[in-house]
């Protein structure tokens, strides 16, 4: 593969070209590129490998490094997963997390699509400033807000219900999604809407039949981001939910599975693995959208 890259036909693309012109590349390339890259990959992925290995290791192997090589499993077991699924409320936690993530994603997508459309397409006096304000809202971190929000949640009678999370997650989802969608709407030619206006379509028809169908890729990436962010959320879920069965996965693993001084590492790792899987699977389906919108959002 590296031969292909090093062939003179490719020298006009990207910044690799000068390197090849300057040096006889092969060894240099291995030392300067593949070795560091392999180190990066190893370090970035090792915790996941370790998580997986631990999740399927029987306890006897887990705590005995002298007789068993810790990097490998000699007799894999499903005991931790079984314990998690049948002796704890794990399925319930997973369900709550899913419900909260889907509901808050839906709510924020709805709100931010409308807002982005108004800011980018209806163009009123001061629309830029509304956009800027929404963008600035993204810079207010949840760590500052959770205490006052907790008092509000109690006053509104939402404490310990999923609604506390469904309503508060949009505070960090809407700014991000709106920002992403404004960028996306910008890329849709305005002429299409003008044509429709001249043909006598109402604004709602334009939004529903022209703008939204064209913005589907943008909506998908905003949706993925919102889903992942709400699956990830921790501090609000920790502060607003008390009863064991309505906790979300990240909170529940940390507060319910860690019991006493002896940590059940097998179950903890199995829980982390299972909790990461939905996002990882979701991510793998839409990885292109994800990467392109991440890079697009930064470029804006």
């Amino acid at each position: 593969m590296s031969d292909v890259a090093a062939s003179p036909g490719n020298t006009n693309t990207a910044s690799a070209a000068p390197e090849q012109m300057a040096w006889d590349s092969k060894t240099r390339r291995v030392v300067l590129l593949y070795v560091p890259l392999a180190c990066f990959l190893f370090i970035l992925l090792f915790p996941f490998y370790w998580m997986t290995v631990t999740a399927f290791k029987p306890n006897a192997e887990l705590y005995n490094f002298a007789e068993h090589n810790p990097l490998w499993i000699s007799s894999p077991t499903l005991e931790h997963v079984y314990h998690l699924l049948f002796n704890t409320a794990y399925p319930k936690w997973l369900w709550t997390t899913m419900l909260v993530a889907v509901a808050s994603t839906f709510l924020s997508l709805l709100a931010s699509t409308l807002a982005a459309y108004a800011i980018q397409r209806l163009r009123f006096r001061g629309s830029q400033y509304v956009g800027l304000a929404i963008y600035l809202a993204y810079l207010v971190p949840p760590s500052i807000l959770f205490i006052p929000l907790a008092t509000m949640v109690v006053q509104l009678g939402l404490f310990d219900t999923p609604f506390a999370l469904i309503l508060t997650y949009p505070t960090f989802l809407i700014p991000f999604c709106t920002w992403l969608l404004i960028g996306y709407f910008k890329s849709i030619p305005y002429e299409l809407e003008e044509c429709a206006l001249i043909d006598g379509a109402t604004r709602l028809q334009i939004l529903r039949q022209i703008t939204l169908p064209l913005a589907v890729p943008g909506l998908i990436s905003a949706g993925i981001f919102a889903f992942t962010l709400s699956w990830n959320e921790f501090i609000y879920a920790l502060a607003f939910i008390q009863s064991s069965e309505s906790k979300t996965v990240p909170v529940a693993i940390l507060t319910e599975l860690v019991t006493g001084d002896v940590y059940q590492w097998g179950a903890l790792m199995a829980g982390s693995l299972l909790g990461s899987l939905p996002v990882a699977i979701f991510y793998s389906f839409f990885v292109d959208y994800y990467v392109s919108s991440l890079t697009g959002a930064v470029k804006e």
Binding site: F40, I253, S272
Partner: peptide, 15 residues
């Protein structure tokens, strides 16, 4: 490479 960023922080923190 993006995986560590996707996986919920708490879960990788436990790892």
């Amino acid at each position: 490479i993006l995986l560590p960023w996707i996986v919920p922080t708490v879960l990788s923190a436990i790892a």
